[in-house]
């Protein structure tokens, strides 16, 4: 029979470092959400100023992925690139949360969790690699 590990009720104590992790995570989540919301709203509003036919097909979506034109499109306030950036920002919010957590666990010398969170980041990297290899 495995050794019984009945932990006594512990006093809830949160170290300064851990409190900072919570505060940082909160800031990132809120900031990313607010900024992408504003950009999405701006994109939709701009798109509605000049309504035009937009096909709901895969082909159209792929043609819209014009990264070389994104910067140019942003400066020209074109709705497509603005919404693309908002989407990217939204996707990057949890990713940056993971990165901040790695650093915060490292700073509080919680090396086990540096590894655990590092694994999560590795899966994200693997996803990007697989995506760029051109699945499909």
């Amino acid at each position: 029979m495995p050794q019984e590990k009945t932990s006594s009720p512990f006093i809830p104590k949160i170290s300064k470092a851990e409190q900072k992790i919570y505060a940082d995570v909160y800031d990132v989540l809120l900031g990313g959400m607010l900024l992408s919301t504003v950009l999405f709203a701006a994109g939709v509003a701009l798109a509605l100023i000049h309504p035009h036919y937009i096909p709901l097909t895969h082909d159209y979506v792929e043609r819209n992925y014009n990264f070389s034109q994104v910067v140019h499109g942003l400066l020209a306030l074109r709705p497509g690139p603005i919404m693309l950036v908002a989407t990217l920002l939204l996707i990057l919010t949890p990713v940056s949360r993971v990165l901040i957590s790695i650093y915060a666990f490292y700073a509080s010398r919680d090396y086990k969790y540096v590894v655990v969170t590092g694994l999560v980041f590795l899966v994200i990297v693997l996803t990007v690699v697989l995506g760029s290899l051109g699945l499909q």
Partner: peptide, 24 residues
Amino acid sequence: GVTAAVGSILFFMAGLIHFYVVAP
């Protein structure tokens, strides 16, 4: 959040995200 981000990254790179639909 991070779970959906992983799926979104792959869909993004595969060209499946329709920004005009995603926004609203």
